[in-house]
Write a protein that binds this DNA or RNA. Sequence first.
DNA 1: GGTACTGAGTAGGTTCGGCCAACCTAGCAC
DNA 2: GTGCTAGGTTGGCCGAACCTACTCAGTACC
Lengths: 158, 158
Amino acid sequence: MIGVVTRSLTAVDSRCSIARGLEILGQKWTLLIVREAFKGRTRFAEFRERLGIAPDVLADRLNALVENGILERRAYREAGEREREEYVLTDAGRDLAPVLVAIRDWGDEHRPTGFGPAALPVEAATGASVRMAFLTDDGREVQARDVGLVRGPGAERF
Amino acid sequence: MIGVVTRSLTAVDSRCSIARGLEILGQKWTLLIVREAFKGRTRFAEFRERLGIAPDVLADRLNALVENGILERRAYREAGEREREEYVLTDAGRDLAPVLVAIRDWGDEHRPTGFGPAALPVEAATGASVRMAFLTDDGREVQARDVGLVRGPGAERF
DNA sequence: GGTACTGAGTAGGTTCGGCCAACCTAGCAC
DNA sequence: GTGCTAGGTTGGCCGAACCTACTCAGTACC
């Protein structure tokens, strides 16, 4: 197996949720694998074919995603085949939808393809199209560009 | 200068806004630099001190961020000092707030620090705290976990 | 029992990107 | 001139990614 996730966080970052999230999500290929999982891919060969990723790197990323609770291995068997394992999103994995949608929205606006969006966010149960928004506590919507970050309770320094 | 951004996209990904966004954002350090920019850092030494990043890599990432329109170089001069350049977020850079907030929310929920969130999203103008949400066209809120992705008009295949 | 086939990886060698320490440079102060 | 400082650049090292080829387990067919 190639490298386990060993990215060390500096003291100042150990409390930052963004840094901690990026420890896994920031690795090359990770979010593209998750994107494929959202599209319904579950098997090694499917990920490999869609992404053109080297098999050793894919095996490493899938292990990391399983270890971090984003994917889970599940046994399956097709008729006349031996038992194999596939990779499906866990709840924590499905909770990554906002990350993918946020990146999609940004890429769509600032690096347009000229073909329109390749993926659309929907409510899974009904298929109703949804969009990402920011809301104040009293339900008023705020434009993304007007959102900033301020120091929170867990910050050691800011 | 070390490597320009040369990540090649496979044909299947060239139309995907997620892949196109990740081409820049997916590089190591990029989003952490943007996070620091949101916190108000502007100078090489500030980024370097906060992130503990190697200077050559920082120079490369700052160049890439400027080339991609996320940061812009701006001249400034302090009393008794020579003119220098600092890096400030552009509109496209501020539009990355949803990406940071989405990662923050996920990290906060699934990789908690025990200290609470280190950064909080607010409306910049008023300081009012905001949260990220998904809305249907008729204004109903949908939980993040219930959001999926479907093929959009720009998809070559899905 | 032997051979072939398939999905899911593993292994070896090369290349690329990140890391670190050291060095460079422009302008200001003295 | 010498020194100081912010903002980088350069060179060497090393781990991670890449590519190709190979293995391994179980099934199918003969």
